[in-house]
Design a binder for these strands. Structure first.
Length: 388
DNA sequence: GATCCACGGGAATACACGGATG
DNA sequence: CATCCGTGTATTCCCGTGGATC
């Protein structure tokens, strides 16, 4: 596969002046041909191979550490395979490829947003049929029946990939097993998560587990330079800088891209065509080591993201306790929530790791408060939300 | 009219400390 | 000394209400 030439990139404007295209480094944008993941793609494709003959592949579990490219690979693969699909909503569509066997449908569900029973059925059905699927007003049990009926009618079958299984705030593996049990036998699934298979009960129902290892240093450098190559002679990110970021990121593509993003943002703000050494230094410092995935942050409901943006803008002195943080956030006119909701949000966000509560030394009176820390790259978060 | 879910509010519980009690 | 109690704060838990949608 020719990666370099097939990487397409969504342009977001501003490039007329020759500014750096930040989107290139977005850690949540996944390109159609993820670089350096060839062997992994092959293994997944091997597993899904029966589908190309019109048969359902067995269930499987794909696992690997944060930033290994699980989402990128699975998404790319399912997008490709989905375009081959010949059936939708149980009805055959004309296929552009002559004399090929009917192929199953391929549906991807993100357990971060489809985090309830209702949400799961909603997402599965939405990925399968082209008609709009209700988000309210219909009961969960009715939706379940609808999904069951629709998927049963699929003559070849449906392969459902569920990404981000078992993350805090997502559907748990146990829950997912129950949900899949309510789907007809025309469905095969591919669960994707970070936990090793031995720790995931869901693997009792899978034929195999497919491991995706973290990126090697050179592979990560390739990811960065491929993304940095904007198709002209201009190189936004010099090789040495990419190498330094890759070294720091230690195999985590999310962190590497976040750092590259921050560095590029600095260069762009200064109207420079390329990232400097100082940009890289600052960027590395700006991306927290224990950062949670920005995908998870961006998947949060609007109001929680507002609260996060507000928290991120506070001075450290305003974040010395949950109560103080609550007060400061409520004072922010962009947040229109009551204090008690903001407080609850803060605790909930800490629960899923997007924020972190750090115990303060005891003050003598009452239970000691917790300082509130942000656990994601704020600059990237801001830029990505500003555009929406 | 029915449904899901986000909000808001408040009750219940946990924790830390100093002082009282056995 | 060990334990209990009261006070003050932090944290968790739960449930009713109402908006948006079908």
């Amino acid at each position: 596969m020719d990666i370099e030439t097939r990487v397409r990139r969504r342009r977001t404007g501003g490039d007329e002046r020759g500014l750096i295209d930040l989107e290139a480094f977005s850690p949540v944008a996944h390109v159609p041909e993820p670089s350096s993941r060839g062997p992994t793609l092959e293994r997944l494709l091997d597993h899904l191979d029966p589908a190309l003959d019109g048969r359902l592949p067995p269930n499987a579990y794909v696992h690997g550490p944060f930033g290994a490219g699980k989402t990128a690979v699975v998404q790319a693969l399912f997008d490709h395979l989905g375009s081959l699909s010949t059936e939708q909503g149980g009805a055959f569509h004309t296929t552009t490829r002559a004399s090929t066997a009917p192929v199953p449908s391929f549906v991807t569900v993100d357990a971060r947003t489809a985090d309830s029973e209702f949400g799961f059925y909603q997402a599965v059905l939405d990925g399968f049929v082209s008609d709009a699927v209700p988000e309210h007003g219909v009961g969960t049990s009715e939706l379940r029946e609808r999904v069951h009926d629709q998927l049963s009618a699929a003559t070849v079958g449906v392969v459902v990939a569920v990404d981000h299984v078992g993350e805090p705030g997502s559907l748990s593996a146990d829950r997912l097993v129950e949900l899949f049990a309510s789907l007809p036998s025309t469905v095969a699934w591919l669960a994707v998560g970070r936990d090793p298979p031995a720790e995931v009960s869901l693997t009792e129902y899978t034929a195999r587990s497919i491991r995706i290892d973290r990126y090697g240093r050179q592979a990560l450098v390739d990811v960065l330079t491929t993304r940095a190559d904007d198709g002209t002679a201009r190189r936004v990110l010099a090789y040495d800088h990419a190498r330094r970021i890759a070294e720091w990121a230690d195999g985590n593509a999310h962190h590497a891209l976040s750092a590259a993003f921050v560095a590029a943002d600095r260069a762009r703000a200064d109207d420079r065509p390329a990232v400097s050494e100082a940009d890289v230094t600052a960027a590395i410092r700006a991306v927290p080591r224990q950062s949670v995935s920005l995908g998870r942050v961006l998947a949060l409901p609007e109001n929680k993201r507002r609260v996060l943006a507000s928290v991120a803008a506070l001075d450290p002195e305003e974040r010395t306790s949950v109560s103080a943080t609550t007060e400061a956030v409520v004072a922010d006119p962009t947040v229109e929530l009551s204090a008690s909701t903001v407080r609850r949000f803060l605790y909930e966000l800490a629960e899923v790791g997007v924020l972190e509560r750090v115990q303060m030394e005891t003050t003598g009176k009452g239970r000691p408060p917790s300082r509130v820390e942000v656990r994601f790259p704020v600059t990237v978060f801001r830029r990505l939300t500003d555009r929406q």
